[in-house]
């Protein structure tokens, strides 16, 4: 590997680390396409390397976010059981698929999630307390506060939002449905090396009603518990390049620490818009690679 290539890998990893930490995606959704498309690595090696980077990114981000209180530990543990099983299944499936299939599946996943985020840009529904106020960029729940009742799932969360300067409390809903979808997130993670936050964040935000900042932090923590299942499958089959792995792990670590600081200062609406734009671009690149189209 030339010094120029090493620099390119390192720069890509830093970029992926910043985005992955800010969006709770783990960084794999940037690392895998760039390693395979821009640097020409076999896609299976790119996915294996991406999964190692995803684990490192999630661990370093979680070290900060667990301490900050943004991670909902109980929800994360409940979702991690099935997510880990899904990641194992995904790793076994991914290592048996051809490169074209992996590119096509990657593109389809990114396109689907970007459409979802554009169709439902409002994100989480917020119910202001009597005499209180909603977060700065969170709209009221459809139907208003009076139409909403709550059942304690033992997973209620609470964190300090530095953007609004207030404490945000929430009660996750439909946790059972979210658990089932977490298995899918695990399969996708293990197959494509994307961490699973690409599904976990929208599911927690849009379906479970977890505020975006808590959803991204909890997603990073879930990834830190689960992505290793897919990573060991790729590693056991030799789909790993030590030099590129080292460059991506260190680059992602540096980027993740920067991203964790940024996310404290950015409003949720910005995160959602950035999420959608990045996914649309990456989807077009992966479809191009799958069908040999010039993108």
């Amino acid at each position: 590997m030339t010094s120029g290539s090493a620099l390119a890998v390192a720069a890509t990893a830093v970029f992926a680390g910043v985005l992955g930490s800010m969006l709770g995606l783990g960084g794999g959704f940037v690392i895998v396409p760039l390693l395979s498309i821009a640097l020409g690595l076999p896609i299976h090696v790119a996915v294996g390397t991406g999964l190692i980077a995803v684990v490192a990114n999630a661990l370093s981000a979680s070290a900060v976010q667990v301490a900050s209180g943004a991670v909902n530990l109980r929800l994360a543990l409940a979702l991690s059981t099935v997510t880990t099983a899904g990641a194992l299944v995904g790793g076994l499936v991914g290592t048996s698929l051809s490169g074209s299939w992996l590119f096509g599946l990657f593109g389809a996943l990114l396109a689907a999630i970007s459409v979802l985020m554009l169709v439902r840009p409002e994100g989480v529904a917020v119910v202001p307390p009597s005499g209180g106020r909603a977060g700065p960029d969170e709209p009221p729940a459809p139907g208003g506060p009076a139409s909403v009742e709550h059942r304690d799932s033992g997973m209620a969360g609470r964190f300090f939002d530095s953007v609004s300067g207030s404490v945000v409390s929430y009660q996750p809903r439909r946790v059972g449905t979210g658990t089932a979808l977490s298995f899918v997130a695990g399969v996708v993670s293990g197959t494509l090396g994307v961490g699973g936050g690409i599904i976990q964040v929208p599911v927690m935000n849009l379906m479970l009603g977890v505020p975006m900042k808590a959803a991204t932090a909890t997603s990073s923590y879930i990834i830190s518990l689960t992505a290793m299942a897919g990573a060991v499958v790729y590693m056991a089959r030799g789909f790993i390049n030590p030099m590129i792995t080292a460059l991506t792990v260190i680059g992602v670590y540096v980027g993740a620490r920067a991203g964790t600081r940024f996310v404290e200062r950015l409003p949720s609406s910005f995160l959602r818009r950035a999420f959608s734009v990045i996914l649309i671009y990456m989807a077009s690149r992966m479809f191009g690679a799958a069908f040999n189209l010039p993108v």
């Binding site: 209180g69 909902n72 530990l73 109980r74 409940a78 979702l79 059981t81 989480v124 529904a125 917020v126 119910v127 202001p128 307390p129 209180g132 106020r133 909603a134 977060g135 969170e138 729940a141 139907g143 139409s147 909403v148 009742e149 709550h150 059942r151 799932s153 033992g154 997973m155 209620a156 969360g157 609470r158 964190f159 300090f160 939002d161 609004s164 300067g165 207030s166 404490v167 945000v168 409390s169 929430y170 009660q171 996750p172 809903r173 439909r174 946790v175 059972g176 449905t177 979210g178 658990t179 479970l208 009603g209 977890v210 505020p211």
Partner: peptide
């Protein structure tokens, strides 16, 4: 392990600056 609920979510923000009392699972 987890319960399903067909009720809505509850996410509220209050004006208190620091978290009152110990955070969940500290």
């Amino acid at each position: 392990m987890s319960s399903d609920s067909d009720t809505g979510s509850k996410a509220v923000s209050s004006g208190e600056a620091p978290l009152g009392g110990e955070r969940p699972d500290e």
